[in-house]
Simulated scan of single mutants.
Amino acid sequence: MILSSICARGGSKGVKNKNLRMIAGRPLIAHTVQQILDSGLFEHIAISSDSDAILDAAGKAGADILIKRPDELATDTAAKLPVIQHCFQQAEATTGKTFSHLIDLDATAPLRAVSDITAVADLLKQPGTTNVITGAPARRSPYFNLVECDENGVPSLSKAPKGAVVRRQDAPECYDMNASIYGWTRAALFDQASLFEPGTRLHVMPEDRSVDIDSELDFQFVEMLMNARQQAEGADHA
C-alpha cells in the first residue's frame, strides 16, 4: 500500500502564503490534492503543515489525514526529510495501517501530469529500486557551459568531460531536479543515508511540467500555463 503526502509549510518568503494563493480558480495546494485523487493510486492523502489554514484548504480539496507539524519541524532551517518521516509515521498511527511505499508531492510544482505520478509509482515498484526522484533535461551542462572558479578566480568547467565536447548536445545528458515528486520504499525512507544510492531512479519530465514556484515570476508563469491548459481543455470539449 502506497501513502501519498504533501508537506506544505505556512511561512513563505519568496511568495507570501503561496500554498493558499488562488491560481487557476483554486488554492495552489488543491491542485496537487486533485492530481493525487485523479491518479486513483492512493487510499489516503496525508498533509503535513504548521498552518491550520493550509490543513483546512487541503481537507476541503479531498485530503483525509491532516497532520499538524511540530514547531521544530516548521522553521526556515528544518530539513525536509525529517518532516516527511514524521508525516509518514503520523499517518500510520492515525490509520493503523502499515504502508510499504511513500510518494511525496510538492504543492509548489502543480504543472505535473497525473501520468508523472503513475510513472513514479511504477518505477518505485521495480525490483532493486529504493527511491525515485524527478527532473527535467538541464539547460546548462557541467561538461560544457557551467563553470567554477578556483581560489585564484580562474574559471574552469565544473566537470571535465572524458573527451572533447564542442557542442552541448555532445555532452552527457544532465537533468535538473524539479522537486515535483519523490518516492521511497518504507525501508529507504528511514534507513537510506543519501538521496542518491544505487537503487535511486529518475523519472524525466518535460520542462513545461517542471516549474517549481519560488518567486512571483514563477507564480505568474505557472498561472499563465495553467490558464492556457484550461482554455485548451475547454476548447477540446466544446
Rank of each mutant, 00 (worst) to 15 (best):
L37T: 10
D116G: 13
F99D: 05
A46K: 04
G14V: 15
L66V: 15
I65K: 15
D52W: 09
R9E: 09
A113M: 11
D76T: 13
V114F: 05
G96C: 03
K13S: 14
F88M: 13
S100G: 12
I23M: 08
T75H: 04
T75C: 03
E92S: 09
I103Y: 00
G25Q: 06
Q34E: 11
R21L: 06
A8V: 07
Q89D: 01
V15R: 03
V83Y: 06
S100E: 10
A63I: 04
V15P: 11
D50G: 12
G59Y: 14
F99C: 04
P110H: 05
K97Q: 14
A30R: 00
I65R: 14
F88Y: 11
S48I: 14
A78M: 02
T94P: 01
A79V: 14
H101K: 00
G10R: 07
K16A: 07
G59A: 09
A113E: 10
L66C: 14
A57C: 01
S51T: 07
A8F: 05
D38A: 14
L55D: 10
H44L: 09
Q90G: 07
H101Q: 00
I29Q: 00
G59Q: 13
K97G: 05
H44V: 10
D116S: 15
G40H: 01
R21A: 03
P82L: 07
D106E: 04
D52H: 13
T75R: 04
T77C: 13
A91K: 06
F99I: 05
I45N: 02
A109S: 14
Q89H: 02
Q85W: 06
I67H: 10
A79C: 11
I67G: 05
G59N: 12
A78T: 06
H101E: 00
L105S: 06
I84K: 05
L41V: 04
I54G: 01
E72T: 11
E92H: 03
E72G: 12
V15S: 02
S51A: 14
H86K: 08
K60P: 01
A53E: 14
I67N: 03
S115Q: 10
E92C: 04
Q34R: 13
A24Y: 02
R21C: 04
L37E: 00
K18H: 06
D52S: 14
E43G: 15
